[in-house]
Design a protein around this nucleic acid. Sequence first.
DNA 1: CTGAAAGCGCTTACAG
DNA 2: CTGAAAGCGCTTACAG
Lengths: 342, 342
Amino acid sequence: MKKTSLSDIAKHLGVSKTLVSFVLNGKGKEFRISEDICNKVLEVAKELNYQPNRIAQGLRTGRTNTIGLIIADIANQFFGILGREIEQEAARYGYRVIFCSSDENPEKSKQQIAMLQQSQVDGYIISPPKNSEEQIRSLARGHVPFVLIDRYFPEIESNHIVVDNFDAAYRATNHLLSLGRKKIANITVNLDLINMVQRTEGYRQALRDASIQVDENLIKVLPFSHDNKDVARAIKELVGKPGQKKIDAILFSTSKLGINGIECISSLGLKIPDDIAIVSFDNPDAYKICISPVTVVNQPLKEIGKTAVQMLLNEIKHPDVPSKFQEVILKTDLIIRKSCGS
Amino acid sequence: MKKTSLSDIAKHLGVSKTLVSFVLNGKGKEFRISEDICNKVLEVAKELNYQPNRIAQGLRTGRTNTIGLIIADIANQFFGILGREIEQEAARYGYRVIFCSSDENPEKSKQQIAMLQQSQVDGYIISPPKNSEEQIRSLARGHVPFVLIDRYFPEIESNHIVVDNFDAAYRATNHLLSLGRKKIANITVNLDLINMVQRTEGYRQALRDASIQVDENLIKVLPFSHDNKDVARAIKELVGKPGQKKIDAILFSTSKLGINGIECISSLGLKIPDDIAIVSFDNPDAYKICISPVTVVNQPLKEIGKTAVQMLLNEIKHPDVPSKFQEVILKTDLIIRKSCGS
DNA sequence: CTGAAAGCGCTTACAG
DNA sequence: CTGAAAGCGCTTACAG
């Protein structure tokens, strides 16, 4: 079961590898190779089940038609689906995807970038974890095509596709306000990442615009690697003693927080939305069937994935163009379900 | 920003590529290269930020240290997490993973296998969609290392890691019986895949062992690419007219079915577990926070992933050993929550 | 219109 | 102990 190579086909027909290569790459016409020979080559290639060795091609041409994808956390459905969109879009253009999950760990993403670099990927799509600035800078310095998704570092010039997190949080908070909620908390993670900062900023601005003073005690910032105990502690602090009614709504900045949060709220015997109204970023399945289906900020995953791939391929194909970085900011939509009452 | 190659280092030091290659591959000792030179090589490699070109290595050695992974559906958290476990375990042994989602589509998986083959992966981990028998056979014929996960084809000899689906469904059904449920339905997908067949078989056997006649009308088999409307229709049929009480429990054979099912049950105004008790395969976040947290058959994802990688690497490293196929059947555990009452 | 030859960046017998 | 050379499977100027 030896694999067949170009020269196997060439020998088989008594022609040169050059010719076979031309034909198989669709350049038969261009080099005016007789149709007869073309057909024979194609036939033999099929017969011997020829599969081009992409690795040899890559070594020779310097392009591997592979892109490296580093997402932040595959256990998060948001990134799972985003990964699939990216893989599908890439496949449409004949590109393969090497897929990594950094689990929000900069050490890991560093190793993964090195690995992808050694694999000679043509470009990168990355949702960088915090403290990975230096890695991204080094990509930029090397003039390697890359695009960032979900977050970026404002101090580093880069291509990136993000959503308007400020606007999304603003509208989500406004939705709560419009339903009469006044004591709205925000649970978020480490404010080292721009997307998280902007979400909390949008929340703040909405309160201000409604002439409600922002109470910093109602903003809970958890470590990135929180578990449900951390979330439970935060919620208990926010809720206060029974009957105290310190808050009447929560904006969760991620679905991981929200899922853990809802679990905790239920176990505390509190009712959604009666006691506490809820809005969360992202739209996992969990929110559709939970106690009180959750009103969410839905991100356009398909569009993020498509745009990221197209932007990257454009960069890969025109390396000459002096790098002008592009920023794409997509809109989110608020899907209203039952978790805020009415 | 030209990448540095072996010969750059060699020139820099006035030695041969051979020597540099030996040192960098940790064979300095073996070839008794003076420690002095070794250190210098290492130093210069670091200084020039040398990154070995894995593609060139691959072409030369015939091994790419890459494994191809085709999972059935990345939008399913089960496979997302399984993918991560596999990637992590592979990384421990210095292997990269090229990640694909076939979306249960045999056309897609066929293309993906061809793509992975062209990328010269050293082996495959696949959860094959139905109607992909020929693809798997062709791998087997080519003596390509591969292991199947989650399902396999009984008529094709293969390495595979699965769970004891019969036992799992048997125990799940028994759990429902032990709580006094008598009219237990099973919602599943196309019975073309062994894992699904075994789940329904386990369900049947549990009923028989409890001297309950299996009512084929209570087994709903949906197409693989079902949406929530299909699930809703099935449930309406099962439930019958209001007050009819045709069933008092459902075993869902997949979490996709279960998530859609619960959404539908709620919208019908039925209560879980009072009107209908529920057990489902798989353990997505959704089940933890839903209306009535769902009792589930939990699969040992970490173990499946680890075992799959180790079995594959073993195969890759000993291609000489006459291929004796291995079967690993892992146990599941039943996580009891509130969806079955008590 | 077609072929011989160089070379991508490695590894590895072989020779000394 | 170290180096020159071949070769993995391709592509692509170059020559005719």
